[in-house]
Computed example of a mutant assay.
Amino acid sequence: MTGSWLLLDIGNTHTVAGLFSADGARHVQVRFRTDPGCTSDEYRMLLRQLFADAAEGNLWDFIERALLSTVVPALEPVVARACGDIPFHSINAHMTREFELALPFPEQLGADRLANVAGALTLAEPALLIVDAGTATTFCLVDARRAYIGGAIVPGLDTSWRALQARAAKLFAVELVRPDNTVGNTTETQIRSGVLHGYEAMIEGMADRLLRDAGLENATLVATGGCINLIRLSPRFRLEPDLTLKGLHRYGQLNG
């Protein structure tokens, strides 16, 4: 475990953390709820506890460097302080990368999307369409020039589901288990069908429209994010649960 890299992808709802070797081999990965109110001491203790079995000792004795992708800006200084003297990098649009940002305001692109593009380019040649199904569902398009040209942002599965519960007085919470059939015959099965099958249809339909409008019909489709285990996408999607962490690792290699 000596010389491991700590990779952190902090989302609005959950955080995924992984220990990788310098050559990209994954040792262990954990997932926990994002807490914007966490202090640096609490964060340091939490990570040490979560990785206790893998590190076989004090985690912080094994970490060589740390790389962060976050959509929660308040946690960036917290994590930096938690890492102490360990070399720390927070992904941004100004770092060395292997793709162009063909955007009018490249600094607005989220760190998670930067990492996703970097990760996808280690797996397949462009053109690419990358879907990240989380609190928000993001679509990223990379053309054959290795240029990020744009995409779309849609409310995520859980976000949409919670909004439906909050706004529809006669609907109630059900366990989100994917039904095999779209035709529900009870309120529960109709909610499950609408939320889960509807979400799948949204991703498939948005992918078609984005590829058509960008002229990238032959692009490779890659899907990641915390919600991909709840849904079933067509076989044209390559499922990569570790995509963001792989992208963080690639940023680390390019920004030594």
Rank of each mutant, 00 (worst) to 15 (best):
G194W: 08
T186I: 08
G18Y: 05
L75I: 13
I231S: 10
I191G: 03
L164C: 08
T244P: 07
R209S: 01
R212A: 14
E56C: 10
F172E: 13
L19D: 07
L46A: 11
A82F: 06
T39Q: 01
G205P: 01
H14W: 09
G256L: 13
F62M: 11
L128W: 13
F20A: 15
A74D: 11
D112L: 11
W5M: 11
G226V: 12
G198V: 11
G156I: 03
L101W: 10
A166G: 15
L123W: 02
D180K: 14
G156D: 04
I91W: 01
T13W: 01
A54R: 00
F99T: 03
K246G: 07
R192M: 13
V174L: 03
F51G: 05
G119W: 07
F51W: 08
S4N: 12
L129S: 09
Q108I: 06
L103M: 15
T135H: 02
S40H: 14
R250T: 08
W5Q: 13
R48N: 15
F99Y: 14
G156K: 05
A120R: 02
G37N: 11
E98W: 00
L8C: 04
V79N: 00
L47K: 10
I228F: 07
A136R: 02
S234E: 15
F139K: 03
A201N: 09
R250L: 09
S40P: 07
P155S: 02
V78F: 05
I231D: 08
R146I: 08
S4D: 13
S4T: 13
A169K: 07
L7Q: 01
L221W: 14
A124I: 03
R209V: 00
Q253V: 14
H249C: 09
H94T: 12
E107F: 07
L67I: 15
S193Q: 01
E64V: 00
R97G: 02
T182H: 04
T186M: 08
L210I: 01
E217D: 14
N229P: 05
T224W: 03
Y199Q: 10
A144R: 15
T70R: 02
G205A: 03
L164M: 15
L109A: 09
A136L: 04
A223F: 11
G18M: 06
L47T: 03
D35Y: 02
A54S: 15
G3P: 08
G150Y: 05
Y251E: 03
C83G: 02
A25G: 09
G151R: 05
Q49T: 13
L171A: 09
V30Q: 15
L171C: 05
G18N: 04
A223L: 13
A25M: 07
L101N: 06
S90P: 00
N255Q: 10
A163C: 04
A52E: 14
L75G: 04
D208T: 09
A52N: 09
R48H: 13
R97D: 01
A120W: 07
I149H: 04
N58T: 11
E42D: 15
V72E: 04
T15P: 04
A136S: 10
C38S: 14
Y251Q: 03
R236G: 06
L233T: 06
C38P: 00
P241V: 13
A17C: 12
L128C: 13
G24E: 06
F237A: 04
L216D: 02
A133P: 02
A115K: 03
P235R: 12
D242Q: 14
R44H: 15
A169T: 08
S160F: 00
L239P: 05
E76I: 00
L157N: 03
G194R: 06
I63E: 02
L210R: 00
L75H: 01
P155N: 02
